[in-house]
């Protein structure tokens, strides 16, 4: 069988992969089919290419070993210590809200717990409830006092820093004046001329 004149071995090699993948147009594929059928070298190349593909497609695939999966699960699960550490870090970063939240929770507990008790069997006397309420008010006032004290301290710190910078400015200005007094600059101010009165 003679090779078609319009398809050479170089043409086959150029489109070889697309041909064996079945991606050529039918007319082009037919030309290559015809050429390969009549060309021992291209036929051999075709067989070799198919063998390589077959070997590649027969290569095994692998599941990750159990120790890798277990290590991943261990890394994905935070320990109790890590969880506690993360919680404490969050509280330490923002202590004021945490203190306020604790105070609010304490108030709610003290206010709600008496209401949950059945009225027919009061556990605490009226005097005890009143005392607990007063103590809660004192606790809230104490927390408020802490917050106001912290605010005052912060304000004083800002003011003292402003005072220090103001003092530094004063010192700097006095240094400038002292330098000016030692070597006064000549006066450049001109006196106005008197206007003659009655001159002829």
């Amino acid at each position: 069988m003679s090779k078609p004149v319009d398809v050479t071995c170089a043409d086959v090699l150029d489109r070889f992969e697309a041909w064996i993948d079945g991606e050529l147009e039918p007319a082009d594929a037919a030309k290559l089919d015809s050429h390969v059928a009549g060309c021992a070298a291209c036929r051999d190349e075709h067989r070799f290419a198919l063998e390589i593909r077959s070997q590649l497609q027969a290569m095994p695939v692998f599941d990750p070993p159990a120790r890798v999966v277990n290590a991943v699960h261990d890394a994905a699960t935070p320990t109790m210590g890590e969880r506690l550490n993360e919680f404490l870090n969050a509280v330490m970063r923002r202590p004021a809200p945490a203190v306020a939240a604790v105070a609010v929770i304490a108030v709610l507990v003290l206010a709600v717990v008496p209401l949950l008790r059945t009225p027919t069997t009061p556990r605490y006397s009226a005097e005890e409830v009143e005392r607990a309420t007063e103590e809660t008010k004192l606790a809230l006032a104490y927390v408020g006092g802490i917050a106001r004290h912290a605010e005052r301290q912060a304000r004083q710190k800002v003011m003292s820093e402003a005072a220090v910078s103001g003092t530094l400015r004063e010192i700097s200005r006095s240094i400038e004046w002292t330098g000016a007094a030692v070597s006064p600059a000549p006066s450049t101010t001109k006196r106005p001329k008197r206007i003659d009165e009655g001159s002829s």
Binding site: F16, E17, A18, E23, E45, F48, A49, I52
Partner: peptide, 20 residues
């Protein structure tokens, strides 16, 4: 992807021709 695959397989064939 198609072009890269074809070139990769061609390089493999050329590399392995001596082994074959």
């Amino acid at each position: 992807v198609r072009v890269t695959l074809h070139r990769g397989r061609r390089h493999l064939r050329e590399e392995l021709r001596g082994v074959r």
